[in-house]
């Protein structure tokens, strides 16, 4: 099975989900699309009928000033549609905000124009927190199969099937941390710590881009996330702590 985890040429739909949040977003998207199709059909049908009936008919409904029933219908109907869309939307919104029983905290700091990742639950042999920076892979260093403007030199490595809490902040100007496959997008604001969580359900490599205009190299600070098995994650941590 191949997953769509990177932007593809002419891709029209969302990337495949890797977390329950993004699955929820897909479901909401489909749900809202249903009402969209319904409204589109109804409006098109009515437009066609009206145009058909009233063209070349100068005297049609000459005496019609107002219609209370019609007013009630065209007020209530859109209100009902909006209500039907808002409930699943709010449920998803507030569920996505919950950070319950995280197993791991990773700090993400946005800087002009790179990201810094801190694994402060763990320390290296000298007692310092595990941290490193992540820069974009320059075009002339790209290899076959790499994604331009998305690949980085180092990536966030995280274990699969584990609740991860991200603490997102910035050190200079506002940035925004976003990973579409996981349904994450949160502002990185200097002086403030924002919290967001995820649960990755499959291993893979997920990409994201800074989503808040932060200066000339705003487009050149992507984030790359590798979701690996627990064994590989622990190997990575022990290598990092050397």
């Amino acid at each position: 099975m191949t997953w769509l985890d990177v932007p593809a040429p002419w891709a029209m739909r969302l990337q495949d989900a890797a977390s329950p949040n993004q699955e929820g977003i897909h479901e909401l998207y489909d749900h809202i699309m249903f009402y969209l199709a319904l409204v589109l059909g109804l409006v098109s049908y009515m437009t066609i009928v009206i145009v058909k009936d009233f063209t070349k008919n100068k005297f049609a409904h000459k005496q019609l000033r107002h219609g209370q029933t019609l007013e009630i219908i065209w007020t209530m109907f859109p209100a009902l549609i909006l209500l039907l869309m808002s409930f699943p939307s709010f449920i998803l919104l507030y569920l996505s905000d919950e950070v319950l029983t995280p197993a791991l905290t990773v700090k993400i700091v946005g800087l002009q124009w790179y990201w810094k990742y801190e694994y402060s639950d763990f320390v290296n042999k000298t007692g310092e927190t595990l941290e490193y920076e992540s820069y974009i892979m320059p075009d002339d260093m790209l290899e076959e199969g790499n994604t331009r403007l998305l690949d980085t030199d180092t990536s966030i490595v995280l274990p699969v099937d584990t609740h991860v809490r991200f603490i997102v902040t910035a050190n200079d100007v506002m940035h925004s941390f976003a990973v579409p496959s996981l349904g994450i997008k949160i502002d990185a604001t200097p002086g403030r710590l924002n919290q967001v969580s995820t649960l990755m359900e499959r291993t893979g490599v997920f990409y994201g881009q800074c989503s808040e205009l932060c200066g000339v190299n705003h487009a050149l600070m992507p984030m790359k996330m590798q979701c690996v098995t627990m064994e590989d994650f622990l190997t990575y941590l022990s290598e990092l702590s050397e």
């Binding site: 319950l100 197993a103 791991l104 639950d121 809490r165 949160i186 919290q195 190997t235 702590s241």
Partner: peptide
């Protein structure tokens, strides 16, 4: 980081700080 003994440990939910802003 031995898989047999490894245990995750991170600050849990604190009802004093229930918001996104931590």
């Amino acid at each position: 980081f031995d898989i047999k003994t490894f245990k995750f440990d991170t600050p849990q939910f604190d009802p004093r700080f229930p918001h996104v802003n931590q």
